[in-house]
């Protein structure tokens, strides 16, 4: 196995914040696809599990100049830092090798049966993308909706209490696509064959998914936009989830800037895009 991301696939995501309507379909699609548990009190955000999470932001201006927007936040699937020393923050700290950065796909995996529940990774993740199971989602914590286990998908294992879980870029869908390709005698999958549940469900198609290493994939073209950015980019975690917004106030929300530090993009400088 070649230990170099430049050569394999690097699956990533581009989310157009200006298109995103904040409807939450991505969150529901993700939960339904990945057998995520529900509690009767989902308003306790320290306990609620949301692999894909919407964050609401406002421009902070007074009425009637107020504007709201949303950041859909999956796992960022952070990459090598470019110096060959560190991989994703969570991978670096995991004592049980339960989470790995796959050098063939760029996906940060989570292997539940290896997880010992120490929650180092959760503390290390700057994006709060990891969730700890404080309870057994099924049976032990009552009231679990009776009969709801009938909608569980066999493609994703059900987690128990004591393990950490997070977005996997719907890794099982990659497996599905690969199996199909192999069965048809192909070694490579098409761009449209592997797409995450959130990207598929988005009714305004604000989420684009694909291989960042493949120049023909839409994602690699989209990230060239001068309006493309990543969350907390200066931490050098190299997230593979990109965002696009033409609104300066939205881009400014993506990192912690000192007063005057954020440089707005003037439309004139970029040209008539």
């Amino acid at each position: 196995m070649e230990n170099n991301l430049a050569h394999g696939h690097r699956f990533g995501m581009v989310i157009d914040i200006d298109k995103c309507t904040g409807c939450g379909t991505c969150m529901v699609a993700c939960a339904a696809e990945n057998n995520v548990t529900v509690r009767s009190d989902e308003s306790d955000k320290q306990r609620s599990i949301t692999w894909m999470q919407l964050y609401k932001i406002t421009n902070g201006k007074a009425f009637p100049h107020t504007e709201v927007s949303y950041f859909p936040r999956p796992c960022m699937h952070c990459d090598e830092d470019g110096h060959g020393h560190h991989t994703s923050p969570c991978v670096t700290v995991c004592v049980a090798t339960a989470t790995r950065l796959d050098f063939n796909t760029g996906i940060v995996s989570q292997i539940y049966t290896r997880c010992v529940g120490c929650r180092y990774c959760q503390a290390a993740c700057p994006y709060h993308a990891r969730y700890f199971n404080w309870w057994d989602g099924y049976k032990l914590i009552q009231p679990f909706p009776k009969g709801m286990e009938r909608s569980l998908s066999p493609e994703v294992s059900v987690r128990t209490r004591g393990v950490v879980e997070k977005c996997t870029f719907c890794h099982h869908r990659l497996m599905r696509a690969k199996n199909k390709a192999y069965a048809e005698g192909r070694r490579e999958i098409e761009e449209s064959e592997y797409i995450t549940a959130c990207a598929e469900a988005c009714p305004v198609q604000a989420i684009t998914f694909g291989d960042l290493n493949n120049p023909n994939h839409k994602v690699s073209q989209l990230i060239k936009s001068p309006y493309a950015f990543r969350l907390l980019e200066r931490l050098n975690t190299k997230p593979k989830v990109y965002y696009i917004s033409k609104k300066d106030w939205v881009r400014e929300m993506a990192d912690n800037y000192l007063p005057g530090e954020f440089k707005p993009i003037s439309t004139a400088a970029v040209g008539s895009r």
Binding site: A32, K146, G147, S151, A201, P203
Partner: peptide
């Protein structure tokens, strides 16, 4: 009507089917 997309309520329809309590 909808080329592939839908709303969150429609996406959650199975929870109304299988939740015996409601």
């Amino acid at each position: 009507v909808n080329p592939g997309g839908m709303c969150p309520l429609g996406m959650g329809g199975l929870q109304l089917l299988y939740n015996e309590q409601i």
